[in-house]
Design a protein around this nucleic acid. Structure first.
Lengths: 324, 324
DNA sequence: TTGTATGCGTTATCAG
DNA sequence: CTGATAACGCATACAA
C-alpha cells in the first residue's frame, strides 16, 4: 500500500496525496476524497522513503551507557520532554558501558536514521573526537566537558570539594575514596581530584583511594578490602550513589554503624539513598535540567546548523542526609 | 558521497561497489580498488536507501515502560545479548508508563524502521490488540500473557500465592497489600489475586488492599494511609520491590522495626532491596532469561514468518530476606 | 566477472 | 490548484 495506490483509489495523482500529507495545498473536494481513502485503508506513508527523500527523520538518537540508573533516567526524561514537544521521537541506544558499543552507535547514527545525536558521555578518547569531528548531523555531549562538540556538564570538581569538606567538618580523619576509571574525566578524575584537594588541604587527615566500576559490587568489595587493610577508616566518599549503596550494604551486613562507626557519602541524589535508615549524604546534580538544556541546544543546532559550539556548566547542591 | 561517487573514483560501476559491500562477487583487483577508495573517503552506505531497497533494517524496536528499573534493565540485557550476536541493533523506545506513547511507538515502529518489535507489556487494551493484529513485522510481548501476539510471561499468580503464604507462615494476621492498576494484568491483577487467594484460605487473617503507581511514593504514601487507618497492620506485601522500598522508607523514617513491628515483601529481586539492614524478602523472576527467550522467539519469526504464535511461562523463586 | 537499467516510496520541480 | 516527472541512494535482474 503506497502513495500511488492511494492516489488511484482516490482518483487523484500521487503528488496530490503527498500534498495532502504535507502542506495541504489542495482543493477541499480532493482533500475529502483522499482523507476517506486513507482512513479506509489505514495507509501510513513509509518513513524510510520520506527520510530518503527529505533527508529528515524527526528522530534523535540518544546514546546512554546504562539504562538502570536514576540519574540517566532523569536526563532522558528532560530530553524527552523538550523533544517530543517539538515533534521529535527519541531512539535510545544502550551501550552497557561498553566503549566499543558507544562508538558503534555513534557511527550507526551518524549519517543515518537520525537528525541529531545526544551522547551521555562516559569516556572521551581520540576515536570519540574523530567520530564527532566527522559527524554530519548536529550532536551534543552531556555529562562531560569535551572540546569536540557542544556539551553540558556538571561542576564535578567543586561538588566533590564541597562534599569532602562537609565530611571533614564532622571530624573524620581517615577517609577513603572509592571512585571509577580515570578514562571518565567527569566522574573518574574530577570527583577524585576534588576529594584529594579537599583532604590534602586539611591537617592530620589520612586518605585511601580505591577504584572500580559503576556498580554496587564496586562499593561492596572495595569496602571489604579497604577495611581489612585499614580498620581505622572512619568515612568513605564514593564517586556515585550506586557505589555508596554497595558500601552501605557491606557495612550493614557487618553491623558497622553509619555514621557512628563509618560515614558514607555519594553523588547523584538517587532515590535508593533515601530509603536508608540514615539517608545518604549526597550531591544533587540537575540531571533533568541537563537533559532539557541539552535537547534545547540540539534543537537550536537543528534549526540553524551554523550555531557555534557551546559548553554549559550546571551547578549542584549538597543534600545532607544522616549518613555523615 | 554516494555509491556512484565511489564507483567513479574507483573506476568501476555502482553495481560493483554494491557487490563489494554485499556478496563480494568481484575480482580481486577491483576489490582492492574499491576498498582503497572507501577507506580514503570514509564512505558509509545510506541505511535509509538500503532499507528502502531491501525492506530490511537490521533494527529491532524494543518498547519499554520506564528505563529506571532493574527488572527492565535485565530484560533488555537479555534481549541485547541475543540480538547483537545475530547482527541486529536495538532501538529502545521509552513510554514513561504512558499508554498513549506506547501505542504511538507501536505505530511508529510498525511498517517502519524496524524488522521486528519487542514490547515489554504493561496494559493490554482493545487498541493494543488491534495494533498488534495490523502489525506487518513480527512482534513479541514480554511480561504479559496476551492472545494477540507471541508472548513470554512470569508465573505472577503462583509467585504471589507462595510469597503471601510465606508471610502467613511467620504468623502475621493483619496483612496489607499495595498494588498497581488492574489495567496491568500481570502485575496489577494476578499478583493481587494471589495475595487474596492465599490470605482468604488462611483463618483469622484480616487484609487491607491499596493501589497506586509503580513508584516508591506509592509505597510511602499508602503505608502512611494504611497505618493511620489500621495501626494493627503487621505485614505489607507489595506488587513491586520499588513500592516495597517506599514502604521501607516510611517505616524507617517513623522508627517502625522491620520485621519486628511490620514485615515487608516485594517482587523483582532488585538490588535496592538487598542493601537494607534487613534485606527484602522478594520474588525472583527470570528477567534476563525472559529477554533472551523473547529475542530468540523474535529471531525465529524473522527467519520463518509463518511460525505460529507461542506463549511461554517462566517460573520464579522466593528470595527469603530478613524483612519478613 | 562486470555494467546498465530499473524500481523501492516519497517529495520537489515545473509546466499546465 | 493539479499532474507528470525526476531524483534521493541503493540492490538486483538481466545483458554482455
Amino acid at each position: 500500500m503506497n502513495i500511488s495506490d492511494i492516489a488511484k483509489l482516490a482518483g487523484v495523482s500521487p503528488a496530490s496525496v503527498s500534498r495532502y500529507l504535507n502542506n495541504g495545498y489542495l482543493s477541499e473536494e480532493k482533500k475529502e476524497k483522499i482523507k476517506a481513502v486513507i482512513e479506509e485503508t489505514g495507509y501510513k506513508p513509509s518513513t524510510q522513503a520520506q527520510t530518503l527523500r527529505t533527508g529528515k527523520s524527526k528522530l534523535i538518537g540518544v546514546i546512554i551507557p546504562k539504562i538502570d540508573s536514576s540519574s540517566i533516567s532523569q536526563v532522558v526524561l528532560g530530553i524527552s520532554s523538550v523533544l517530543s514537544e517539538n515533534g521529535y521521537q527519541i531512539l535510545l541506544a544502550n551501550t552497557f558501558n561498553d566503549e566499543r558499543k558507544e562508538l558503534d552507535y555513534i557511527q550507526t547514527f551518524n549519517e543515518n536514521f537520525v537528525d541529531g545525536i545526544i551522547n551521555l558521555g562516559t569516556v572521551s578518547t581520540r576515536e570519540h573526537a574523530k567520530a564527532f569531528k566527522n559527524m554530519t548531523v548536529p550532536a551534543v555531549v552531556l555529562g562531560q566537558n569535551v572540546s569536540y562538540a557542544s556539551c553540558i556538564y556538571h561542576d564535578d570538581y567543586n561538588a566533590s570539594l564541597d562534599l569532602t569538606k562537609h565530611v571533614l567538618s564532622k571530624g573524620h580523619k581517615n577517609i577513603a575514596y572509592i571512585g571509577v576509571t580515570d578514562k571518565d574525566k567527569a566522574v573518574g578524575v574530577l570527583r577524585k581530584n576534588g576529594f584529594i584537594d579537599a583532604t590534602s588541604a586539611a591537617s592530620g587527615v589520612k586518605t585511601y583511594v580505591a577504584s572500580g566500576d559503576f556498580t554496587m559490587d564496586n562499593g561492596y568489595h572495595n569496602t571489604e578490602k579497604l577495611l581489612k587493610a585499614h580498620p581505622e577508616i572512619d568515612a568513605i566518599v564514593c564517586a556515585t550513589d550506586t557505589i555508596a549503596l554497595g558500601v552501605v550494604q557491606y557495612l550493614n551486613k557487618h553491623g558497622l554503624d553509619i555514621p557512628g562507626k563509618i560515614a558514607v557519602a555519594g553523588f547523584g541524589n538517587s532515590s535508593g539513598g533515601q530509603i536508608l535508615t540514615h539517608p545518604l549524604t549526597t550531591i544533587k546534580f540537575f540531571y533533568k535540567e541537563c537533559g532539557i538544556e541539552g535537547a534545547k541546544m540540539l534543537l537550536e543546532k537543528l534549526q540553524s546548523p551554523e550555531t557555534p559550539c557551546k559548553s554549559l556548566m550546571l551547578g549542584y547542591e549538597i543534600n545532607e542526609g544522616a549518613s555523615v
